[in-house]
Nucleic acid binder design. Sequence first.
DNA 1: CTGCATCCGATAGGATACTG
DNA 2: CAGTATCCTATCGGATGCAG
Lengths: 111, 111
Amino acid sequence: MKELPIEYSHCPIRHVVDRFGDKWSMLILYILDTKGTLRFSEIQKEMIDISQKMLSSTLKRLEADKLVHRKVYPEVPPRVEYSLTEVGHSLMPHILSLTSWAKDHFEMFQR
Amino acid sequence: MKELPIEYSHCPIRHVVDRFGDKWSMLILYILDTKGTLRFSEIQKEMIDISQKMLSSTLKRLEADKLVHRKVYPEVPPRVEYSLTEVGHSLMPHILSLTSWAKDHFEMFQR
DNA sequence: CTGCATCCGATAGGATACTG
DNA sequence: CAGTATCCTATCGGATGCAG
């Protein structure tokens, strides 16, 4: 995803696409919303086809965006738990709104 | 965007990301929803930074998904008008729901 | 276990030129 | 005007190996 042109810095759609238009963000948010707090490996189990690299980098971005909270336990072996922040939770109804529409119009998705 | 794994063919989020996770789809839908029926060049004027290639291919995909209607006038020079279909319009409230959230949480977007 | 570093291929997407 | 064709680049994202 490229830099957002300055002249569009006010456009919410551009922001949304810029932030959630990647392959994994929405799905991770959805999983954390559904399952609650999860460890790194648990999230990966839920998705099967995501690589460690993408899970790691996507989580990092979501954390930077304050949508996901990352809690590290000072243990050996290390334990890290991920959960949605308040802001993250506030976003979910709007994502679910989109997916509910997708469900209703599911037939059109059977190309 | 890659092929959607079969085991996830029922997952609405995967579908949504697969269909609207690209750079331009949502924005084009938004513009057509706001401005109504527009010609090819008029859409492009609204976006400035989209290339002809991407506008063309994205419109084609949206048309294949029955979200956008394409009407050709048999004139010279040619005239083509694009507008949202009923299904396309039914999708908009859900996209706007997402963008309204983005507006509300706009501060966090000032990285 | 939870990552980061590196290498690498696929492809999304931009620039330009050309056509009916 | 409304595209198509071609070329090209950046980046997305996967595989593997390594570290704390």
